[in-house]
Design a protein around this nucleic acid. Sequence first.
DNA 1: TTGTAAGCGTTATCAC
DNA 2: GTGATAACGCTTACAA
Lengths: 324, 324
Amino acid sequence: MKMVAARAGVSVATVSFVLSGRPSGRVAASAETAERVRAIAEELGYRPNQAARAVRTGRSGLVLLSLTQLSDPWCQSVSQAVSAAASGHRLQPLILADGDWGDVLDGQPVDAAFLDAASADDLPRIRTLVDRGLQLIVFSDDLEPDGFDVIRSPQRPGCELAMAHLLASHSRIGCLTGTDPDRPGWHREHAYLDALQQAGIERRPDDLQRYTRDQVGVYEAALRMLDREDRPTAVFAASDFAAITAINVALRLGLSVPDDLAVVGVGNTEEGALMHPSLTSAGPTDFFASLAELIITVAGRPTDHRPRRHDFPWRVHLRESSPA
Amino acid sequence: MKMVAARAGVSVATVSFVLSGRPSGRVAASAETAERVRAIAEELGYRPNQAARAVRTGRSGLVLLSLTQLSDPWCQSVSQAVSAAASGHRLQPLILADGDWGDVLDGQPVDAAFLDAASADDLPRIRTLVDRGLQLIVFSDDLEPDGFDVIRSPQRPGCELAMAHLLASHSRIGCLTGTDPDRPGWHREHAYLDALQQAGIERRPDDLQRYTRDQVGVYEAALRMLDREDRPTAVFAASDFAAITAINVALRLGLSVPDDLAVVGVGNTEEGALMHPSLTSAGPTDFFASLAELIITVAGRPTDHRPRRHDFPWRVHLRESSPA
DNA sequence: TTGTAAGCGTTATCAC
DNA sequence: GTGATAACGCTTACAA
């Protein structure tokens, strides 16, 4: 910056004013000066040192996304949506993969941070960060906003809706679900089991098929459930991916969807919406885009933002695989 | 820091010296002073501002991983390995997902950066960064080291090895490969086709099965290839995942692996090594751990590191699915 | 419209 | 063994 100033025959302050482009008390710079400064900066390949800027202004242009399971498509969607929303805002999202967000946020000055999971145990550390002025957005089914934003999108009632939808027209319902719990504390198959019980329908062992993490497992679990005379007439799948597989297996077995088999997924992914037949799925609406917009907005305006709760209730998104 | 110094009755310099723990010309601090400073810092919840530290020292403690496809298991392995290697080194790896590394590295001072792809077109920008003192590690089949490290792990000769291995004992070889190119410029099926041609073996259309990105597709492609009398006696799969699926399909069809069907994968993943029967696979050895170690070492020692080329040649790792 | 100078939080040098 | 002090690169209130 000093070099640019010298070469342009102006002061460092003027260079800063011209290049940072922010209103800093000064009113304007002459078009001529500004042009000259910009040209020389370009020629010299000057790039502002963000760390120094951060020391002075307290703003680094960084947005931290703390994501637990990089392999989870959910995380990939978050990352993608935030990147898209950030472009043009001079904000750079970076991902902390399965790391200790406390360590990073303690030292690195970031403009905003998103935590994909947090419990009451984390509240003390969250409090410290918030007190220090960090803009925090937390995805949590338990926490309430308190100086930080909370994204609330509870699965359980959504899964119940999906089961209620199926129970309206079916009494033989299968469940296709993963073996390892998606989130601690509650498994999606509970929504299935509880709904059956409340409807007074006896549970048939073969109608609940669990698959292991890997993808071949889903295919085989779907076959176990569907490749028999006495198959269910509807399937509640614990993820859209499993639902899509179930539909593929059904079609392969010569069944018609939804006539011979109705299918409902969970997650309301784009993939499900685009397939044929399109997939009925329980999930929040516009989740990723709205979340991303919130993060970027909050990062941009440290001041006039009042943290609150953002509810993304789950709906059953009716599509071809299981119409109304 | 000022507050800590005041409360401890020492100067800011002493606090810095005690807490940063680095040799800065000073020799030592009295145990008593050091203890008092640490206690007060703890009590006040003092955390060093990394941005300010970076301004002064030029080191931020950040390592940037620029990864193109977050959904690619390869990226997840890189991330995981680097995180593991970084712990205990006061280095924090952060991921830039499918973003413009130039933008980030221009401004944010990071101690080292890894680029998962770069071509000759990127050389000017790379040069600028290197000149500015950035430690850069680039995964590339073309570039040569020049102030930055190059990770070289060429697929093509590795895939040729795999085909040569199969051709030693088989003449009917199938190929299971994805439809979308893994990396630009060359598809793994070319290794298959070229090897067949050079061996003077006629290519049978049904022996080459392409699958679409999604995982159900792999299962179905494997079925198309194997669920017929006139099936190949060996399969070259373009990824370990596809190879694992092929083995599962073969076993499901009542075939014995490797007696009825030999299978070779690509990537040398841990998953393949651990399955039963274990998977013969072409790939580099110790790739992720070595890469991670290199990145962390380079980030730690900006000075006495002479950038060079790091070769990870591909071998055929012989295991049960296709013994020697 | 521009320059001067103070200051952000930290570390390095040097004199005490 | 410790404290002043300058400096890192940048922004900004204020004076010119």
